[in-house]
Design a protein around this nucleic acid. Structure first.
Lengths: 336, 336
DNA sequence: TTGTATGCGTTATCAG
DNA sequence: CTGATAACGCATACAA
């Protein structure tokens, strides 16, 4: 171990010729310090390279300033975009983000939340998976705020931010019908998360209202490769679909690539495609994909402001938020 | 503020019928506790939902377990892939990642490092920007380890992990020449980071050795759009290049899309392209891009093991590491 | 092996 | 407005 010799408030106090409480006050916004001593302290701190020890401060204040971000598949376009927005907003709000990676293994999210508790995180934002009810209660009981994004859980306490997946899927049918499509398909993964399944259910329901059937194919874990596999299955059918709604842009990219390069299909002439997420690649001219935009900035803002404003001192009941997914028209559907 | 009422070691001790130090020891690997009391403590802790307070532990041990990741453009494919790998490895090593977003503004990295100091991070890993020398010294002086990835700085102290950019660029020329290309071009951004410039310099030098000139175009900040702009400039020249080395895969994607969809060029028949990073999209069949793989896993492993193994108790001189970037052959160059 | 006492760097409380 | 003092929750040196 190295010479851990961080400079403490004590040393700053000595150099500035004041008491250590004066130093503390100088770094506490809204504390009662005369401007004169404040300046003395600040200068001494500057010279010594003093930085307030947030570990100790958190211990005292019962407020660490840490917000834990629990997420799997960080390297995925949509996830990383949301991550960027969240960290950004948190920083602006004076919080700091702690990133915990989860995998699909059992209890992975629970372990992440334990880590959050150990560091006395003021809040945890869960982007993937779903925690066990008991540990959720543990967090809540300890005054740790919880935000579930696109998790569609119904336990009370956490703030739950969701999209209007079901309704959005309905608008896809309208678009496809207007484009003259009649053989509809839905491309999904086997992840089976609530939002994914809501898109599927909404699509099927709306199609049925139009008197149309939907071919559903599911494969893998919502990635590009899965899209290729699904395309393989869908496009080799005797009754080849002329419109595919993909649960995810990543799936759509894989499907489009397979459709074009393996099946020599022209999009949107022979096949219309709509995705979901509006990842950056959706706007690349190789895809030019019509898709739903995840409102990442407003998701992040809602989450962060709720965390910071700590509105309910006694009863910390989060509410459920349903955000709107806007359809971004591009070239993968006829007659936009 | 809510009822912050985390359960403490004291309560666990009472319930288990032991002293509070026994509790502490039960949670300290390698402490001298009888298996009997350890079990008693663990059970009591389980029942109460006790989690060690890492804020307090960090205060005592002078070791927070926090590693600060300083990065801009988190949502970028290469960055997010590296981020995923780093967080993963850190977790395995028993550390936790603190994510600080930087922008291109002045002093952004310095502020991030201050945050790292405030939370007494055991180490900071810098993926973007370059800190001021004074603050670097401050970190080092405080025993905070520093890792610079692809920053190519020469100040002693931090561990510096770099790629063999210059040599790699040389191999590009070989590949292009073998493909029968004669009009070489280099697509770069205006970011001007050392690794980007090394690729440019290495390419030009190797080309000159073959008696070939290089057309260089730079624009924007290393993204897809910048690639499109550069393509515009490059492909409207009277002497149109027949081979382009792009400093980044993102640039390459933009350039390829422009080449194909705006200039109707066939790749690799009329234009050979090589990129750098091997982002996921490079393998998508719309691009099928020959490129250099960033050894993200070994970068992460090198960084993390160095941080954890704390090899030099007194003199914490990091060394410089030069990793190899392997060329991944795909279809964007003739005669792979 | 166990318990007791002390200190880590802060902030909050209370006199002055 | 300022300084002394008591927590915060934990780990460790020391004594038993």
């Amino acid at each position: 171990m190295s010479q851990r010799d961080f400079v403490s408030a004590e040393e700053v106090a000595q150099r500035a010729g004041v008491s250590r409480s004066a130093v503390s006050r100088a770094f506490t916004p809204g504390a009662s310090v005369s401007e004169a001593t404040r300046q003395k302290v600040l200068r001494a701190a500057e010279e010594l390279g003093y930085q307030v020890n947030h570990l100790a401060r958190g211990l005292m204040r019962n407020e660490s300033g840490i917000v834990c971000l629990i997420v799997s598949d960080v390297a995925t376009p949509y996830r990383s975009a949301l991550l960027r927005e969240l960290t950004q907003q948190l920083q602006i709000a004076g919080k700091v983000a702690m990133l915990v990676n989860t995998d699909r293994s059992d209890g992975s999210v629970d372990r992440a939340l334990q880590q959050a508790i150990r560091y006395r995180a003021d809040a945890s934002i869960i982007l993937s998976g779903l925690p066990d009810k008991s540990i959720t209660q543990l967090c809540l009981r300890n005054g740790q705020r919880l935000v579930l994004i696109n998790r569609d859980d119904d336990q009370p306490g956490p703030l739950r931010i969701n999209l209007d997946d079901h309704e959005a899927a309905g608008r896809v049918v309208t678009a496809f019908v207007r484009a003259g499509c009649t053989r509809l398909a839905f491309a999904n993964s086997e992840a089976g998360t609530p939002s994914l399944m809501a898109r599927e259910a909404g699509f099927i329901a709306a199609a049925k209202a139009h008197g149309l059937d939907v071919i559903v194919e599911r494969h893998g874990w919502t990635g590009y490769e899965a899209g290729k596999v699904v395309a393989q299955r869908l496009l080799t059918r005797r009754e080849r679909p002329d419109a595919v709604f993909c649960a995810t842009d990543l799936l759509a990219c894989g499907l489009m690539d397979a459709a074009r390069h393996q099946f020599s299909l022209s999009i949107p002439d022979q096949l219309c495609v709509i995705g979901f997420d509006d990842i950056e690649q959706a706007s690349w001219s190789s895809y030019d994909l019509t898709t739903f935009a995840q409102p990442v900035v407003s998701i992040a803002r809602q989450a962060v402001t709720w965390l910071v404003d700590s509105p309910s001192p006694n009863r910390l009941d989060g509410h459920s938020l349903k955000l709107h997914a806007e359809l971004v028209w591009r070239g993968s559907v006829r007659g936009g």
